[in-house]
Design a protein around this nucleic acid. Sequence first.
RNA 1: GAUCCAGUAGCUCAGGGGUAGAGCAUUUGACUUUUAAUCAAAGGGUCGUAGGUUCAAAUCCUACCUGGAUCACCA
Length: 503
Amino acid sequence: MLENTKNDQEMRRIEELELLEKAGVQPFPYNFDKIHTCKFIIDNFSDDNPEILSEVAIAGRISSIRRMGKASFCHINDETGKLQIYIKRDDLPDFYEHFKMLDIGDIIGVKGYAFRTKTGEVSVHTRQMQLLCKSLAILPIPKEEIDENGNKIIHDAFEDKELRYRRRYLDLIVNSQIKEVFIKRAKIISNMRKYFDDKGWLEVETPILQPLYGGASARPFITHHNALDVDQYLRIALELYLKRLIVGGFEGVYEIGKVFRNEGMDKKHNPEFSLMEIYVAYKDYFWMMEMVEDLYSHLALSVCNTTDIEFDGKVINLQKPFRRAKMFDLYKEYTGYDLKGRTNAELIDIAHKLKVEIEPGTTNMKILDEIFGSFVEPNLIQPTFVMDYPIEMSPLAKIHRSDEGLVERFELFINGAEMANAFSELNDSRDQRARLEEQARNRAAGDEEAMVVDEDFLYALEVGMPPTSGLGIGIDRLVMLLTGQTSIRDVLFFPQMKPEISR
RNA sequence: GAUCCAGUAGCUCAGGGGUAGAGCAUUUGACUUUUAAUCAAAGGGUCGUAGGUUCAAAUCCUACCUGGAUCACCA
């Protein structure tokens, strides 16, 4: 398929293209004066006043053809939907011969007048037709039927997931309903941006290629800069550079962009994904919780027109305020054990009692994480702020003002999945240095995801960062929630795929 | 990374040791309001790749590739 092996249908299209050219048809013209959309014509056609659409100019891709000798019907699709075209030989004696050589997939421009057919479908009667692009590949367009209840039945839909992801352009043409997901995605992002802009916070761009990576626990992608002859990393988070900008005097900055983590892929993870991070000076994580619940309610209303979101057979209520619960209270609630301040031996014992498999030598953090994932997370269906994490889990968060051993951090869980992560940001450079050095020791001990020490970031903190609250939101997971998609691949135009072997 | 399932015509699928099938799509012919258009005829395949077993493999075996699901890892 990648090679130049054409099947009979493709060969025939090339022949037709050449025949059309010989007949003087330009198969790839430069422009077309497209005035109307398919949807506009359907929405605005009036049986009482058909003359208001007596001069229309539309264009789109042919999605079906019904030829009846000296007259034909076809449907074309543009960005807004599909519309039926009627073409009669007597109207266009010359072009009708060319029309016979057009195929499903070709893009045409049509000028004519709107009318309603005998069977009731608003259509355009062709006065003039122009080929705008000859398609040489065969589209897997399915047949569609409208049953007596007006429901659309699609026959033999193109649903091979591998091909749909690898050739998303085909998927978009043929399964056009998926466009709704991506349109919503764009709306979510633009509404989020507007929400922040309206508050006066500044959208910024920070480096994607970085000499050091940081801001999250993850393995990076490594690349090489030839001119400088140095290895560089693709960013795994936005945090450290955005904090530098708060140090620099901006009081509210945010960035929406791709980050890259060199890890496995599954329904919830893609190696590159979109992250939003925002930092607001003089605020703490309590303030941030209010901002987050307001943002989520606002986005649900503006994108879905409701705060009751149907997802995976459940109804998620994004009406603010969200539940707030301290992490160790949740442990108590869902396991019956108080896990705070436990020794390693005690935690291992409890893990065994809970039938959580723990390998010998597992750290407290791993055990806590494990129990949280098995016993707490699956219960956090409705939006829940999980507050106050152990300090070891959060090297960039500020120590809790009253609870020893904890930091002021919350994560927002919805439908058992982490949706957002926020702190009162650590701005004591001495503490930050100590925590990064602890990370470095973990790293030396074999933890490949531990953070590296970024001296320049530490210097920035020494210069001084005001009290600040920061937040990260995984855009893809938010889009999944608001569009009802259960796989991250269905909210990405081009999800990561293994390369096809070229033969 | 582990396990299971899948890969056959452009699409959706059947077939499961003995000549490769269907519907749609395509081609030819008929048809000037059809809409899963209809009617008649025709063409189209290295059965994911590579080995093996066998007189004979799409079919059985092994390995590999790609995808999906579940689990593990992972914010």
